[in-house]
């Protein structure tokens, strides 16, 4: 039996799989990971199926421990950089660790980015609602009891044979400067004055603190609509940038409402969605228009990088074994300063 207990958790952490598809025509939101690349990276590290459910950490992590009679579970953290430790020793992103009996995995606040992924080898074993285990907390669908996680929750973990510990050498992510987010312009952009449309691409926007899985509010100089800001409600794709009466953009993301009645000036390309979702309050960005062909080229590049990830995996040093080796080398003199956690 494999089980993990939530001892403590941030308020917006949820179980996600790739998302709930085929039901938007019934008003049922897609959900799924805010950063698909980070989500997929975690599955590759743990050699899990593509759709295995994992925990998405939104801004704030939590404390996790094995259930009372659970066998050890391997895990990895990807996506946003969180302050994280296993039994008080710092752990890295993009690396497979073992959560052993009595261990406490403690994940604090996000330091770079917003969304982290705590994936477990074998995935979280949870029932599907309408074909998916993704949580849509607003509608009370999927995940653990249709809601975000709470302290005291107990999650079953699917069984899977133990994996050799691996890691992806980390690439540092810069947070300085102005991010460029690529978009495809929509014909609904005709609803804006030419000066406003020009301003949309030239001005620097800031991400506000008003953000969740549904959408992100941006601030900058307001755009002007030619005449009114109502359209007859129609479909909202992932990454749609809608401009309501305020003239300021709201970017619609994984938990967006499937239909809406504000004009959508442009849509963020799929390749840039995860990078956009990781922008934090106060970070600056600019929108740059690209063609459909350019968007696909960028998407192919992201996919190729993910497909090549297994080649990048290297064996993680087995700290337990190297410790034993050092004992031998120094003929039994055990260093009391060695506080490495048991992991493999």
């Amino acid at each position: 039996m494999r089980e993990i207990n939530v001892l403590k958790t941030g308020p917006a952490n949820s179980i996600q799989d790739l998302g709930r598809f085929g039901h938007q025509r019934l008003g049922i939101t897609q959900s799924g990971p805010m950063d698909l690349v980070a989500f997929r990276t975690a599955q590759i590290l743990l050699d899990n199926p593509d759709n295995a459910p994992m925990i998405e950490l939104a801004g704030m992590g939590g404390d996790f421990r094995l259930g009372r009679n659970s066998s050890p579970v391997q895990f990895a953290l990807t996506g946003a950089k969180f302050a994280a430790s296993l039994n008080s020793t710092a752990i890295d992103l993009n690396r497979v660790y073992m959560l052993g009996i009595g261990d406490v995995l403690s994940i604090g606040a996000a330091q770079i980015g917003n969304y982290g992924y705590l994936a477990l080898r074998g995935g979280i074993d949870i029932e599907h609602v309408l074909g998916s285990s993704a949580t849509h907390s607003r509608a009370g669908l999927g995940g653990h009891q249709g809601r975000t996680l709470r302290a005291g929750d107990q999650l079953s973990v699917g069984s899977a044979p133990k994996l050799a510990p691996v890691l992806i050498p980390s690439a540092s992510r810069s947070t300085a400067g102005i991010e460029t987010i690529h978009v495809i312009q929509n014909p609904q952009s005709e609803m804006f004055t030419p000066a406003s449309l020009d301003r949309f691409y030239t001005q620097v926007y800031s991400v506000t603190a008003k953000m969740d899985r549904m959408g992100v509010y941006l601030t900058g100089h307001p755009l002007s609509h030619r005449a009114g800001h109502d359209i007859i409600s129609d479909g909202n794709p992932n990454g749609a940038i809608q401009i309501p009466g305020s003239g300021l953009p709201i970017v619609l993301l994984a938990d967006r409402q499937p239909t809406g009645g504000y004009p959508k000036i442009a849509t963020i390309i799929t390749a840039d969605l995860g990078r956009f979702a990781q922008l934090r309050g106060g970070q600056k960005l600019r929108f740059q228009p690209v063609s459909h062909a350019q968007a696909l080229e960028k998407l192919r590049r992201v996919n190729t990088a993910l497909e090549n990830t297994p080649k990048l995996l290297v064996s993680a040093p087995d700290r337990k074994e190297s410790r034993l080796l050092s004992y031998n080398l120094i003929s039994g003199a055990i260093s009391s300063g060695d506080t490495m956690p048991w992991e493999d």
């Binding site: 019934l26 008003g27 409600s233 409402q257 239909t259």
Partner: peptide
């Protein structure tokens, strides 16, 4: 006319 906005919500 359509179902949208939230699950099963009929316009």
């Amino acid at each position: 006319y359509m179902i949208g906005f939230s699950p099963g919500y009929a316009y």
